[in-house]
């Protein structure tokens, strides 16, 4: 039964298996560390620059086509409403002003939030005022 030759063969294949397993493990660990590294690059799961560029370019096209359809009579409201929505930069200010404690970065985050808030409220309200004037008169 205990054939030394077959035993040695089995031991050899076992060693091979173990080697392959180690390789797999190493690959997995590598992958994991890569994922961990990319996960820390950004708050939204860290999309790559190319991915962000894709979004950017497509959004420019959307903007181009939507804005050409805006009637010239409403170009002033267009400007004030784009002004208001560009204040979505408040998102950056919120993240900066959000952490516990207090420091320089938190302070300028607060400044950013305040400035953007002026713009958001001011921009939307002034747009609303303008658009109300464009209601059909009886």
């Amino acid at each position: 039964m205990a054939d030394p030759a077959s035993l040695a063969g089995r031991a050899g294949s076992l060693a091979d298996d173990a080697g392959r397993l180690a390789q797999d493990l190493q690959a997995m660990a590598h992958q994991l560390s890569f994922q961990a590294a990319t996960a820390t690059t950004g708050p939204v799961g860290g999309p790559s620059l190319v991915y962000e560029l894709t979004i950017f370019v497509l959004a420019v096209f959307v903007g181009y086509h939507v804005v050409w359809r805006v009637t010239p009579a409403l170009h002033s409201p267009l400007m004030s409403v784009t002004n208001a929505i560009s204040s979505v930069i408040i998102v950056g200010g919120l993240i900066a002003a959000g952490p516990a404690g207090f420091g320089f970065s938190k302070f300028i985050g607060f400044v950013a939030v305040t400035l953007a808030a002026v713009n958001i409220f001011g921009g939307f309200i002034v747009t609303q005022r303008m658009l109300q004037m464009f209601q059909r008169k009886k």
Binding site: G42, P43, V44, E52, I55, F56, V91, G92
Partner: peptide, 8 residues
Amino acid sequence: LSNSLLII
């Protein structure tokens, strides 16, 4: 900030 909303 890798924020798609701001980019768009």
